[in-house]
Nucleic acid binder design. Structure first.
Length: 429
RNA sequence: GGAGAGGUGGCCGAGUGGCCGAAGGCAACGGUUUGCUAAACCGUCGUAGGGACAAAAUCUCUACCGAGGGUUCAAAUCCCUCCCUCUCCGCCA
């Protein structure tokens, strides 16, 4: 969210910079409400000043044993006027905050302008696309034939868009999680592991930008004000909500494995089979808090960390820069990592790495105090970043598809074998 | 779930209606002293939003003592609701 003062003073700049991203923002209302907020704030503060002075006067009179009734009557009036003015102020501020929370982040200057996914820019490719003597099978066929994926029973016990993994499939999922976490918590990557809550409150969801605009994408409990997290980004970024961090502890890097829960509203008919699009999936997430001047360097680093997972697994992928039209609400710049899926003959998203600049930090009140340099240690908002490192289910998909063998077995990438009890190949049991 | 005790600045802790944005201590920062360290002494030491100044320094106003309401001329202090923490009992992985 934008600072309300900044919003008032830079309305036109924000509006033009957002372009079509700001199409559904009620700009005229914001202008009116901003001006009104300023006027009423001034009025309230003046009245309070009058009241404070009057109260001091009463205290003085009473100490001097002088009658104070006259002043008290006058202050009663002032108090009533304050109540009215405060009521107005609150209404205006609530209305203004509500719309301000729905304005998306400004794209960074390096982000290509575009309307949709077709305008995204490919940055680089890595790996060799495998060749097959016969057409490669989709992962659900590979998995069901091996007896390690069971979508029929998942549908029975939960419904569509859920999965059941068994035997070597379950083991592979767990192996991937451990491999990723072990990699990111090494000295070179330097992330601190976190196990956060999977249910969070409304304030937390607002801090990272899921609320108020995207409530329909979230699962929500019926009786309690709890939401299931759609990504570990939410609880981990909110670790430091309403905190002022010491500048010398930045950058702060966290990694967390969590299940993620998404309604997938509006995606009917897309990726209906297999593990690609589920209501519940596992993900290892990377989250970074850093200073504003270092955040774009950190985005490259973070993206590299996500890539190194794919490289370790020897899965071919490409990196793309999302254009302005395809970026998420909170992001200032996003790289997507897309892994090659042989059955679809295309690259599919497996990670999304974003710099949110101060957008989330403003919503969540995450600041830092600069250290060193000049002595004036004015606090400033941190920049937050995050990226999948990686989506575990989709990684399993990529392994089943890319490493499937003519006999229906699947070769296990060598880095995962220690996590699989030395198993080199998944075969029908 | 039952009973009780609490939530005050980076931390500890005083403050039960008015010169209280809040004593005192610790930590931190700057300085004096010092062969070095330590100690001692002096000073600084919350966040945010307005206003004054061309701007900075600075000055000034407003808000903030878990959150939100209420009482009052006036609330950290009294009342209500909620949240959180702790102790005991019960239950439980």
């Amino acid at each position: 969210m934008y600072d309300l003062k900044y919003l008032r003073e830079n309305l036109d700049h924000i509006r033009t910079s957002l372009g079509r991203r700001g199409n559904d923002v009620p700009w005229a209302d914001i202008q009116t409400l901003s001006e009104e907020r300023r006027a009423v704030t001034t009025q309230v503060e003046q009245l309070r000043y009058e009241l404070n002075k009057g109260s001091e006067e009463i205290a003085r009179l009473r100490r001097a044993k002088a009658p104070a009734e006259e002043v008290m009557m006058a202050m009663k009036q002032v108090g009533d006027r304050i109540k009215v003015a405060e009521g107005t102020l609150r209404k205006v501020e609530d209305a203004l905050t509500d719309v301000a929370l729905r304005i998306p982040n400004l794209p960074h200057g390096s982000v290509p302008v575009g309307a949709d996914a077709s305008d995204n820019i490919e940055v680089r490719r890595w790996g060799t696309i495998p060749t097959f003597s016969s057409p490669p099978k989709p992962h659900w066929e590979v998995g069901e034939n091996l007896g390690i994926l069971d979508f029929d029973r998942a549908a029975k016990i939960a419904g569509a868009r859920f999965s059941v993994m068994t035997g070597a499939g379950a083991r592979l999922e767990r192996a991937l999680i451990n491999y990723m976490l072990d990699l990111h918590t090494t000295q070179q990557h330097g992330y601190r592991e976190v196990v956060p809550p999977l249910l969070v409150n409304r304030q937390t969801m607002t801090g990272t930008g899921q609320l108020p605009k995207f409530e329909e994408d979230l699962f929500r409990l019926r009786d309690e004000e709890y939401f299931l997290i759609p990504t570990a980004e939410v609880p981990v970024t909110n670790l430091h909500r309403e905190e002022i961090l010491s500048g010398d502890c930045l950058p702060l890097r966290y990694t967390a494995y969590t299940p993620c829960f998404r309604r997938e509203a509006g995606s009917y008919g897309k990726d209906t089979r297999g593990l690609i699009r589920l209501h519940q999936f596992n993900k290892v997430e990377l989250v970074v808090f850093t200073t504003p001047d270092g955040s774009y360097e950190e985005l490259e680093r973070l993206t590299g960390h996500a890539e190194s997972v794919l490289q370790g697994l020897n899965l071919p992928y490409r990196v793309i820069t999302l254009c302005t039209g395809d970026m998420g609400f909170s992001a200032a710049k996003t790289y997507d990592l897309e892994v090659w899926l042989p059955s679809q003959q295309q690259y599919r998203e497996i990670s999304s790495c974003s710099n949110f600049e101060s957008f989330q930090a403003r919503r969540a009140g995450i600041k830092y105090r600069p250290i060193g340099g000049k002595k004036e240690a004015k606090t400033d908002f941190v920049h937050t970043l995050n990226g999948s490192g990686l989506a575990v289910g989709r990684t399993l998909v990529a392994i089943l598809e890319n490493f499937q063998q003519p006999d229906g077995s699947v070769e296990i990438p060598s880095v995962l074998r220690p996590y699989m009890g030395g198993l080199e190949r998944i075969q029908k049991e």
